[in-house]
Simulated scan of single mutants.
Amino acid sequence: MDRNVEKNGKVFWILKALLIAYAVTGALLLVLAMLLYKLELDEKAVSAGIIAIYITSTLVGGIVIGKMAKMRRFFWGLCLGIIYFLLLLLITLGVYRTLDSSGVNMLTTFVLCAGGGMIGGMIS
């Protein structure tokens, strides 16, 4: 029974950290949209902003899950970043029904999400 409670606790850690990471993503995307509207940013600036949002969101999620895990924090942060990327990929597939970006862009996004989560777990 203790193992079952422990496994459920870890699932709740991941879900809580993912929820916080996606809340940060939503808030930062809203800020980016307002900046785009007010400042008429070009495509490069928006792309850089989206990359910064991925890193910041997974970093915050990694910090949250690292605080909860207390052991192997970098591993849990890495797991959070990978799951964040996979959910991002599923959302993209659900909305657009295709993956238009190149493999290099997807690999870069994966590394940024996984790395951001891992670094967040390390500094927690």
Rank of each mutant, 00 (worst) to 15 (best):
V60K: 01
M118G: 04
K38N: 08
T109M: 03
S57Q: 06
V5F: 04
S101I: 12
I123T: 10
F74P: 08
A48W: 09
L99R: 08
G61F: 06
T98M: 13
T56H: 02
L19P: 06
M68H: 07
V111R: 04
M1L: 13
S124N: 06
L30Q: 01
G94S: 09
F110Y: 10
T58D: 00
G117A: 04
A114H: 07
G120N: 04
I55F: 14
V46Q: 03
M122S: 11
K67W: 12
L35H: 02
K7F: 10
G94P: 05
V104P: 04
G9E: 09
A69F: 10
S102Q: 10
M106R: 05
V64F: 12
T56D: 03
G115F: 10
T108M: 15
A69R: 09
C113T: 13
D2R: 05
L39H: 02
V11W: 00
V11M: 13
G103F: 07
Y84S: 11
L39I: 10
L107V: 10
A45M: 08
G66C: 11
Y96F: 15
L41K: 00
S124W: 13
A23W: 03
V60A: 04
V60F: 05
I65L: 08
V95Y: 08
F74D: 13
Y96W: 14
D100M: 14
L112E: 01
V60L: 01
L88R: 05
V111W: 06
K38S: 12
G49T: 02
G62A: 00
A45E: 14
I83A: 05
L18S: 02
I50C: 02
K70R: 06
G62Q: 07
E43H: 03
G49V: 11
I123V: 15
V104H: 01
G116D: 08
